[in-house]
Amino acid sequence: MSLSDKHMKVLITGANGQLGYALQKTAPAVIGAGKMLLQLIPVARTEFDLAQPESLLARLDTYQPDAIINAAAYTAVDKAEANQELAQCINATAVSVIAQWCEQKKIPLIQVSTDFVFDGKKSSPYQPDDKTNPLGVYAQTKLAGELAALENCSTSYIVRTGWVYCEHGANFVKTMLRLAAERETLGVVADQVGTPTYAIHLAQMIWQLLVQRPTQKIFHCSDAGVASWYDFAVAIFAEAKAVGLLEKVPHVKPIATSDYPTPAQRPFYSVLDKQITWSILGISPCHWQSAVASMLAAYKKQQI
């Protein structure tokens, strides 16, 4: 690592996505015990295309980062069922290329993964070392990406998360706000349970991980508490009305997953256990309902 100029260059892939935005927004000015100035290299798909793994090494040699946060992924869960080759390329093959480069340079790689690596048959929060069993193509390729990072780079970390939303980009919260303006009644799935994750909190956790570099390799990160998509929607509408983003709250009707069939099978239960993350990184957890309030307040400011 070349740090003679007291700069630490961190490459952020998927820079235009929700997490990419949040990582840039929450980046510390200085990082580590050496108080190095943090220099971000945010790259979008046009500059760093994981669908073309053969092009990545030349880009990495040009950027010469001191750490990489891979926040880019093929995340279209249902479309992945018909696009297995592309999902595998972006979520696993490209990760292998990046991880090998990081290993050669002895720099850390933070690979962002998903709660969908679990099959949802458990009834208590998933621990980082619990057995994985992905149900669909998206989940299978993300697990392959985890293994590619861990097997090819001794300085890699896996951060599993789920139900991510932010004031930037497309997500469930914004979809609910749009539908609330269009409909009086909404059916929302009530038998899939997980935990919403505010991208800002996820980004803050990742920066903390990069600073501390613990021996633990796999981390779980979402906000505190548990919710179904139905619970999430009800909270969004209540908070949106409270802050003046909605005049009228629609009637929310709980529905079953079977009432809303999708190409990809999803886990019914994907709550992640974050105790290790909070303990090792010294994080004070925020309940997901408080996080929704924070996001909607930030979103409202953007609308003014």
Rank of each mutant, 00 (worst) to 15 (best):
L186K: 05
Q275V: 14
V234N: 10
D5S: 11
F237M: 14
A224E: 12
A227L: 07
F172A: 01
Y126P: 07
N171M: 07
R213K: 15
V271R: 01
V211L: 10
A291W: 04
A22P: 11
L179V: 04
D119N: 11
K35H: 09
E151T: 12
A51C: 05
T185K: 15
P250E: 06
T185P: 01
Q64E: 15
L60S: 07
P196V: 08
L60W: 03
T197E: 00
A87F: 07
V173C: 07
E182R: 12
A29N: 10
A82I: 00
H168R: 10
A227T: 13
K248R: 14
Q64T: 12
F118Q: 03
L245G: 03
P65W: 10
T46A: 14
I304H: 14
P196D: 09
L186G: 08
T93N: 11
I283F: 07
L19I: 14
L245K: 06
L57M: 12
D130S: 12
W101Q: 01
T277C: 11
I200C: 05
V252R: 05
P125F: 13
K121L: 14
M176F: 10
G187N: 08
E146N: 07
A293V: 11
S154T: 14
L40S: 08
V77H: 02
V252Q: 03
G194Q: 03
K79H: 09
A51G: 15
A22Y: 04
A298D: 09
K25C: 08
P128I: 03
G244I: 05
T185W: 10
G34D: 10
C89N: 15
D61W: 12
P261A: 05
H7P: 00
L11Q: 08
K79G: 09
E47S: 13
F219P: 01
A87N: 03
P250V: 07
M36G: 05
Y138I: 02
T185V: 12
G282S: 07
L150S: 02
L109H: 02
